[in-house]
Design a binder for these strands. Structure first.
Lengths: 241, 241
DNA sequence: GAGGGGGATTAGTCTAACCTAACATTTATC
DNA sequence: GATAAATGTTAGGTTAGACTAATCCCCCTC
């Protein structure tokens, strides 16, 4: 059913040395639970493309290591130490993405996969040097915020483009980063962090959304629109949900 | 006795996807045997800091994968495919070292350890971009030759500074790269690839070697001198062995 | 050609992380 | 409040790669 055999590597760059898979679990738990909410094991399994049984096993080990708190059949929550580790990995990942894009002209649809591997091998020193070399970026190429060295991250939540009402203008702040094909498509449409969009109309019943983006008119489906986070512009009141 | 538990990671960046440990074995076999000579399992064990038993087991697996040819109690030799894989890893390692040093100002005594981890995670595309970004270097910061994309490497052999006779001048071409403390010391002495040394005198019975390096006089032991490879200058005949 | 010494191998364990299949628990529904 | 559906967990197996302890094989010496 699943990806099959795969092996692991204990990381030894600096701190407490977690394995690659452990870092991936912590990152997933953080991202699903937005840092604090309790997370279902099945959701972790889905995100990491593993079986639920594997996650149950790993989660128990994470609890033994004090990285999560966990009660059977209830969810999983990061402990303070797990949270710090997750943010450290997240910082590595996003700094690497930003560096690949900024310093080595990597196309934005390919930085994610490369960073996914490098984040487990790069030392904190390397990551800090990368960050310094490109001017201490605060977001990655997809607009995701980069945690600080100290483990602080901007946790502002944004509307998705799908939630924006007709007539409203907004600035794209972030797009989801793990589907290269989708990223290429968004890039073609000029829907990238920083660009300005105006919702011209929204067809009912999950219908297409018409937009103006940098002068041109285009139309996208709600599934895609929901992957684009925006900050509303000008309009005094927040758009209706 | 040894380093204990450690886990592994299947690499999936591009080619045939070897595990980190497998890449390390192939690299070690290549470096010990200079690419073609048959290598003793114990020598591999020593270099990788593993037990001989572990190496025996792994070498059998490598043979099954067609990466080495191996007959029990005889040595191990890389097959063509193993040789290619070794050179690919060596290229990754050295390009990364050169990049860290050239683009991120990493000190030369720390690039080795960082590259040792990154070489298993970086894709060939990333390595090629790094190489391009620093002008396609042909040697790493310690003077070791970088294999080409096509898997060709300069295999010139050099004398060590310990073999150089009194009175001879030479240019340092390469120093061994895996001992950070030694590298810092060599750096302090200005014994780095490209610098010119003259052997003033050599005390007998493994005694100290007096040198002139960039104007200053200094004296080093033969153990250190043997870690420094040089190309003789001017003098018509090769120095006596 | 009979030992010995040292290098190399096998035998048997261990661990992390995964899997499938079977079972348990919680939640939702009537 | 019983039962079905959904969700989660255990049991047991696999793999790569390491380890220790015990043994084997080659070759060198006498």
């Amino acid at each position: 059913m699943k990806a099959g055999k795969r092996e692991h590597l204990r990381l030894e760059h600096g701190d407490e040395s977690l394995t690659g898979p452990v870092e991936d679990y912590l990152k997933a738990i953080y991202e699903i639970g937005r840092g604090s909410v309790s997370v279902a094991t099945n959701d972790i399994a889905q995100r990491l493309d593993l079986t639920a049984a594997s996650v149950s096993g790993m989660v128990r080990r994470l609890a033994e290591q004090g990285l999560v708190s966990y009660e059977r059949y209830k969810g999983v929550t990061l402990t303070e130490s797990g949270r710090r580790a997750a943010l450290r990995t997240l910082r590595r990942h996003r700094v690497i993405e930003a560096y690949l894009s900024g310093a080595l002209s990597y196309p934005w649809d390919r930085v994610h996969d490369e960073a996914e591997r490098l984040e487990h091998a790069a030392s904190d020193e390397l990551v800090d040097r990368m960050a310094a070399a490109i001017g201490e970026p605060v977001v990655d190429p997809h607009g995701a915020p980069i945690p600080s060295r100290e483990g602080l991250m901007d946790e502002t939540e944004y509307f998705s483009l799908a939630e924006l009402g007709a007539g409203y203008a907004a600035r794209v702040v972030r797009v989801s980063d793990d589907d290269p094909e989708m990223l290429r498509y968004l890039g073609d449409l000029a829907i990238t962090p920083g660009s300005e969009v105006v919702v011209i109309s929204k067809a009912p019943y999950e219908g297409p959304i018409s937009l103006r983006v940098s002068g041109s008119l285009l139309s996208i489906g709600p599934a895609l629109a929901s992957q684009v986070l925006v900050a509303p512009l000008i309009n005094p009141e927040a758009p209706a949900h």
